[in-house]
Design a binder for these strands. Structure first.
Lengths: 213, 213
DNA sequence: TTTTTCCTCACACAATTATGTGAGGCCGCT
DNA sequence: AGCGGCCTCACATAATTGTGTGAGGAAAAA
């Protein structure tokens, strides 16, 4: 038995979905909410396996709700349920821990199967949304490996420690070299990366994916 | 007639795919290459609509090739063709301008349809890869809107100019205030954002999406 | 072997940043 | 009228960063 919590500010839709879901013997709607705050409130007293969440809600919207729920209840599966096309937010949703993203006009079968998949830990995405998700990725052409200047491994060491807010002195200690050496590496990095200070360097480094570990 | 360029370092596979593709009257293989350099060489003399690209190749691999090709021939559609599971790179591929990503063991129909879709500008992704792509997104939980401290508009002004590598003096000039004022804003930002220097601040700012304009 | 690249370090100086403390004016809310 | 938040600025000082120049040694590449 999969325990569901439904969250949507349209009461009609809430009842409609509830009816659909309860037609399946494996599913049980243990509660409903009409905004994020109510969701958090409900979770305090009810055990929930899967949370069906509308993206746009008053008080606390879907994205914000995801973050809060995931923080307090990391093993609840969150399935976004939305009207359509808020394409650009899809990646954000997943980055913040959502398990799936389905359209409200999905067929009954897809909806139910989606919930079961989500419960099983599988990621769920409406087929029509795949392209949108890809598009929202393509927006930001990040990391141009071919055009990235050749950063040496030692320089990368220094770069990463700078990113951690260490001072030159601390970096020197960490790497067992003199501060002069560290300063030299920084100097060379500035030239290679065509920046004028550490801030610019860290920005490019992030864009280039140099700090992704 | 869609003109295709095939790139793969496995000659056998190259011929196999070629045979499959040429069975369709709308497709024409106008050239083949076994690494990225050969691709660039070929493009100099041949007009190509869609480029089928293997991800792993010697000399210049798929990703690097994408970047170079997109730079010089932005309207060529690039379809990645790969054995399987290099999941984490999927998003990178798309960010850099690929149009699609298909498995080599896709059926003949899917392959041909994929090429036609890509030619028409549609994004193409093997169904089995959707989940992997989502997973590679979930890795990095970025942007926590709810937890972001209240940055005032003036502070944001300062923050953005810092991100542009301006010095305190330059920022002061830009905003028509004294350097003391700018310094104060920075000081307050450090406390709010819980960082110890500008580098840390810019990192968080990027994570929080404060610099996305 | 010669050359190049990378890592190391020194010394010095100017420029900038970070920190601490205190304070006046303005605006919106109670 | 009073309070809190925001923006403004001053003064001072320590800490750190950025820049210029020069150089030795080891390892890899030509």
């Amino acid at each position: 038995m999969i325990r569901l919590l439904l969250a949507d500010d349209h009461l009609i839709l809430l009842h409609g979905i509830r009816a659909i879901l309860e037609s399946d013997p494996e599913l049980e709607v243990v509660g409903t909410a009409s905004n994020g705050l109510e969701v958090l409130e409900a979770l305090k007293s009810i055990e929930v396996d899967v949370l069906l969440l509308d993206l746009q809600m008053p008080e606390m919207d879907g994205l914000e709700t995801i973050i809060h729920v995931k923080k307090s209840y990391p093993n609840i599966r969150i399935l976004m349920l939305t009207t359509n096309d808020e394409g650009s937010i899809i990646t954000t949703i997943f980055k913040n821990g959502a398990t799936g993203y389905l359209l409200k006009n999905s067929s009954q079968e897809i909806l139910i199967q989606g919930i079961k998949d989500a419960f099983a830990g599988k990621k769920v995405l409406s087929p029509h949304l795949t392209e949108k998700m890809i598009n929202s990725l393509s927006d930001k052409p990040k990391s141009l490996p071919g055009l990235t200047p050749r950063i040496t491994s030692r320089e990368l060491d220094v770069l990463k420690l700078i990113a951690k807010q260490l001072t030159t002195q601390q970096i020197a200690d960490e790497l067992f070299v003199s501060t002069n050496t560290v300063a030299t590496h920084k100097r060379n990095l500035f030239v290679k990366m065509d920046v004028t200070n550490s801030v610019g360097m860290i920005r490019k480094a992030m864009d280039w994916g140099l700090l992704d570990d």
